[in-house]
Amino acid sequence: MLNIYCPICQRDCDETELSCGGQAHLIRRDHASSDKDFYEYLYERKNGKGIIFERWRHVYGCGKWFHTARCTLTNQVFGSYSAKEVQPPKSILATIRRSRVDFKGWVK
């Protein structure tokens, strides 16, 4: 069972308090977008092996959404940050680089 830090409550939470919301930093495509962009927004997800950025909601807690960076191979968590961020903060990327020298950085 994962244990993840909620940046709003500022405390560690068991996975049973949380609900996972899939890939973070999706860009919403509205009616003005192309069909291809819209299709990708609706259905295309990275589902990567290794470092991913994902959304969590502290459902049985503050009820707030936040983002984390996690390695899907080892479940190492590199930190949590606000769901308002449009891309991962520099501090999170630096933490990842410290333990994954081959990390290429965040890709949109």
Binding site: G21, R28, R55, R57, V59, G63, K64, W65, A83
Partner: peptide
């Protein structure tokens, strides 16, 4: 309720 919160917090905050 969860749907409204999600849109409010993550898209139209």
């Amino acid at each position: 309720y969860a749907w409204l919160e999600e849109w409010l917090q993550t898209e139209w905050h």
